[in-house]
């Protein structure tokens, strides 16, 4: 009996969490007059709203832009942040702790504070309306450095020594030995960086004005709030769905990989 009550409670909780997503999905497929219904069911499902979005804005271009920007930043963060994380955890040099503290400190500063100076910098460099403006500021992440540093610290020292004796340089050690044994850390940093970049609206809004360089969230926000959606909720929801689907798919793929790699890393201490 207890168990049944427990499961009923869990079910209710699940519904509370999942219902908005289900509603959003079905509402984007319902005709405009049925949008306000609470029930997710309808007899008139169609892709009409989606077709309208495709017709009104270059959403495919925005999708590609987002993909280019998010992938570049993710790859760059993985490469550079792991390099810095390695140096901060495995190399001995003066000022190492100080550098780490400074990096930690930058994590405490909200992005809104550095937004204006960064924008001024972009203008001075002549980078507004370019991919550089979207990519370069995000190429190294303090969060990635922190996570890699902590993860690499636990890596057995003698394996690193063995690699050194076997002829590896520090780059060799990082990319040939530590990377293949740090899949969970790489996947975690990768997913979080990709999602953050993908969902970022504020920065693209500041540095990009040309439609051809706009990222997907930026375009969707301008579309829904900026008037092009003509206050049609179905169309707005359809564009929001298109924004969310890639990230959900990526998350689902790597989530599985993430759990698998957590279970299978066989580093014996």
């Amino acid at each position: 009996m207890k168990r049944i009550i427990f499961y009923i409670l869990l079910l209710i909780a699940t519904l509370i969490f999942v219902y908005p997503f289900i509603w959003m999905t079905t509402a984007s497929l319902r005709p405009e007059r049925e949008i306000s219904y609470l029930s997710p069911l309808s007899r008139n499902f169609s892709f009409g709203s989606y077709i309208t979005v495709f017709k009104r804005i270059p959403i495919v271009r925005a999708f590609l832009n987002s993909l280019i920007v998010s992938s570049s930043i993710t790859i760059s963060v993985l490469i550079f942040s792991s390099m810095i994380g390695y140096a901060l955890s495995r190399l001995k040099f003066k000022g190492r702790e100080l550098i780490f503290m400074v990096i930690l400190f930058t994590m405490m500063i909200p992005f809104q504070i550095t937004l204006i100076p960064l924008y001024v910098l972009m203008v001075k460099l002549g980078w507004t309306d370019t991919y550089q403006a979207l990519i370069v500021p995000g190429m190294i992440s303090a969060f990635g450095i922190l996570l890699f540093r902590q993860y690499f610290k636990a890596f057995p020292k003698s394996i690193i020594d063995a690699a050194r004796v076997d002829g590896c340089s520090d780059f060799g050690i990082l990319y040939r030995i530590i990377w293949p044994n740090s899949i969970p850390a790489l996947v975690t940093v990768g997913i979080i960086t990709f999602m953050n970049t993908w969902n970022n609206v504020l920065w693209p809004l500041v540095v990009i004005r040309k439609t051809s360089f706009m990222t997907m969230p930026q375009m969707v926000v301008l579309f829904t709030v900026g008037g092009q959606a003509e206050a049609q909720v179905g169309v707005q929801l359809a564009s929001a769905m298109m924004l969310a689907i890639p990230i959900v798919i990526i998350y689902m793929i790597f989530q599985r990989h993430f759990i698998a790699s957590m279970a299978h890393t066989g580093i014996k201490g």
Binding site: P156, S158, I159, D161, A162, A163, R164, V165, D166, G167, C168, S169, I177, P180, N181, T265, G266, I267, K268
Partner: peptide, 20 residues
């Protein structure tokens, strides 16, 4: 000299094989 320039080989207590 760095280890890689010494042409030495080392066997460790904890084996230190590359897990992957």
């Amino acid at each position: 000299f760095r280890p890689k320039d010494r042409n030495i080989a080392m066997v460790f207590q904890s084996y230190s094989l590359y897990p992957h």
